[in-house]
Design a protein around this nucleic acid. Structure first.
Length: 338
DNA sequence: TCTGGGGTCCTAGGACCC
DNA sequence: TCTGGGGTCCTAGGACCC
């Protein structure tokens, strides 16, 4: 299940006069500032505006669009409503972020179940979604894209190659631009070519885990497991891109302490202690580097987390102007004892 | 077109140990 | 005189996703 233009749809719900207009949500809503598009409505997409596009560029491509600030709390609340409704249908449900979930259903007529899901979510929240049906997670996930907007699409082992065989490898879930380019260097351009590739050759280039996984993915094979287990995060982080680069290192230290304070509140919410703190610095030329500091013992104490963040920051020797700072707290692996 | 924020998982290299 | 092979842990970076 994948909600259609989720963030834009939530904004349109609370401002119905926006329906049918190009709407762009991102940053603090000011397209003159640093920031990127979180979601664009379908009308804005027709002008070439899409997620990840700099807001400035979006304004140039679609000057008549309505620009809105990103309102995390509103999207979290709307997402909770959707997922609660979805779980109410009684299927095993695994939530994947704000706007997606896997639902495990073994049915003779999966399209009927898909339509049931759509109607149920629409009745509960007024939001539209697409439902992809597959014989595993990979197929179902890719099928949602073919169902958009508000539709249903089914992929199977039999239709995998007719539908996807000729598409570039980057169309697959888990293969991005970098991997697509590396595969091209091996002479592998399409999904069908990836499926037929020599696993040893691909493993030689991508390693013993990712190599075989890539070929399996090209074949449309993957996990069928859907877990309703409550999710335990591995880390919590906060980061900020400054409107003006920070040139003064004492200001950098100040900001790291502030971020550490926010992260501490997030850690306390988890009721699990942090074991490590990592600081991220993106310098003005858009080069990013990270350094970490292990905590002496697991803790949720703000003073100790801030001190660890400063210790991690101390490992940076480059004093170029800073564009972004981030602080991340890591938890112990929740499944280590299993 | 000057490129957010919040995450996850895998890999490679160095330290260290036997 | 400088050297094997196996294993684990930690750290930083890379890639991807929503």
């Amino acid at each position: 299940m994948d909600l259609d233009q989720f963030i834009a749809a939530v904004e349109i719900l609370r401002r119905p006069e926006l329906r049918g207009l190009p709407v762009v949500v991102g940053g603090d809503g000011d397209p003159a500032k640093r920031g990127v598009v979180a979601t664009a409505s379908y009308e804005a997409r027709q002008h070439g505006v899409h997620s990840g596009l700099p807001m400035r560029t979006a304004a140039r491509r679609c000057p008549d669009a309505v620009f809105l600030p990103s309102d995390r709390a509103a999207y979290e609340a709307a997402s909770d409503e959707v997922m609660t409704a979805l779980r109410g249908l009684g299927y095993v449900t695994e939530v994947m972020g704000w706007d997606e979930a896997f639902v495990a259903v073994d049915a003779d007529d999966p399209e009927a179940v898909a339509r049931q899901i759509q109607q149920h979510i629409r009745a509960a929240t007024e939001l539209d979604c697409s439902v992809g049906i597959g014989q595993n997670r990979l197929q179902a996930k890719l099928a949602t894209d073919f169902g958009k907007p508000a539709g249903v699409f089914r992929l199977t082992h039999d239709s995998w190659f007719p539908v996807l065989g000729g598409k570039p490898t980057g169309a697959l879930w888990g293969i991005g631009g970098k991997t697509e380019r590396k595969l091209s260097e091996l002479g592998i351009h399409t999904v069908a070519e990836l499926a037929a590739a020599d696993i040893a050759v691909v493993a030689g280039r991508f390693g013993p885990t990712i190599g075989p996984w890539l070929v399996q993915t090209g074949r449309g094979l993957g996990s069928t497991e859907v877990s309703a287990e409550p999710y335990l995060p591995r880390s919590r982080s906060r980061e900020i891109t400054f409107q003006q680069n920070l040139a003064d290192w004492s200001q950098v230290r100040e900001q790291v302490v502030l971020l550490a304070g926010q992260v501490t509140r997030d850690v306390e919410e988890e009721h699990r202690p942090a074991i490590r703190v990592v600081v991220k610095v993106r310098y003005a030329p858009f080069f990013t580097s990270t350094h970490g500091h292990a905590l002496a013992e697991p803790t949720s104490d703000g003073e100790l987390i801030a001190a660890a963040a400063l210790a991690a920051l101390g490992k940076f020797t480059d004093r170029r102007p800073v564009r972004l700072l981030g602080v991340r707290a890591e938890f112990a692996d929740p499944y280590e004892d299993r």
